[in-house]
Design a protein around this nucleic acid. Structure first.
Lengths: 211, 211
DNA sequence: ACACATCCATACCGGTTGGTATGTAATGCG
DNA sequence: CGCATTACATACCAACCGGTATGGATGTGT
């Protein structure tokens, strides 16, 4: 039946619409009424599945944002046997793998971090958790690369990972504020160069043959 | 007289309080009532000096934020005869020259860009203007450094400048979301390394003697 | 001293906000 | 089948929002 009750599907619809609205307007400016208008549902549905607006926001982080980053970045990076190559490839191709409105509207994770981390402890924890996974994943990639002799031994891979993630978010942020996908590409290319600069001469040379 | 009327001082009080409130809550969540409560003034004063909340926000950008960046970064960078040294020094010491709440609350410019650029054309223009000055200033420093033989000839100084500014904002942003001044220092040190990587071997070597 | 513009305070307004109380229809279970 | 629980819709609320209309106090030019 078409109009049958499907609570978890309803819940997902709300989550998706909330993600979209938050992505466009930020969390605080996100309107419950707008979210519901985009789903065709009403407040009864929303407040049945989520006790407060904050809980809805946290669920968006855990179930939507984290999931997307997981599939797009974390998982490939963890599972690759040549993590440095994979990191470079992701950085080089991310501008084509992501819908263009993700440059115009910014990284959903970064947007929320900037807005909510100083204001709400719960948000800060969840967002910091996702960011921490990102950082640890890059860290692991660099560490493994160091063991494989692709990353120079003297590189502080923890600091480098922190910087990669920071610069990454910075590139999206500036490109967003310029409303320019082109600036994003240029910027990420420089980040690509930074990571290459961490590599041993041998590994860097061999890369071009392999690629 | 103490309670005498001083319109431009009143205006400045409003601007300062607005800057502070916006820095804490963002522009949209910034409450006119809060701003006024912190000044002891009322709406009559505010709407006498500024026609709308948007105009107040734009004035904060032009008169407060731009001024601070000008004094802290732009001016030293423009006026130095050894711009690359100066850029490195600013990057290395910025974490000590700025009050700690600027890490906890983020860069006021970046905060507003992330929040408002996709939403409001006027904001996007003003913010983009300030960001453009920043970018051009770094660009000029790198370009002059190239002429002086400190920056390698093959470096794309425009792209590098864009990346420096992006990574810079990214470092503040991530440090803010972690609520960690320490992370900011670590991150900026990596950016310092990136800029050093743009230098010629000779210039980089001479730097440690000179410093 | 008078007229007038500037400067600011007070009171008020319609609209929107997140949240709730109530009602009702569908579903799962014994 | 009967009943309790789940899953929503509807109507409503106080609080707050940015903005305005009005009025009075303070200079300022003449």
């Amino acid at each position: 039946m078409d109009t049958a009750r499907q609570p978890d599907l309803t819940r997902q619809d709300i989550l998706d619409a909330a993600f979209c609205e938050i992505h466009r307007c930020g969390f605080q400016a996100a309107s419950i009424a707008n979210i519901l208008a985009n789903t065709g549902l009403t407040k009864g549905a929303l407040y049945h599945h989520f006790p407060t607006k904050q809980a809805l926001g946290l669920a968006v982080i855990d179930e939507v944002i984290r999931g997307r980053l997981e599939g797009l970045i974390f998982k490939p990076l963890r599972e690759s046997e040549r993590p440095v190559e994979m990191l470079l490839e992701i950085i080089a191709t991310i501008d084509r793998k992501v819908p263009s409105d993700f440059v115009m509207l910014g990284c959903p994770l970064n947007n929320l971090m900037q807005e909510m981390s100083p204001l709400d402890e719960a948000f800060k924890e969840r967002l910091g958790g996702v960011l921490g996974v990102w950082q640890k994943t890059v860290e692991g990639a660099l560490k493994r690369g160091q063991k494989q002799g692709e990353i120079r031994a003297e590189v502080d891979y923890k600091a480098a990972a922190l910087f990669v993630v920071s610069a990454w978010e910075g590139c999206i942020g500036v490109a967003k504020s310029m409303q320019s996908p082109k600036a994003f590409s240029i910027c990420m290319k420089q980040l690509h160069g930074y990571v290459q600069g961490l590599m041993t001469a041998k590994a860097e040379k061999g890369r071009h043959k392999g690629g």
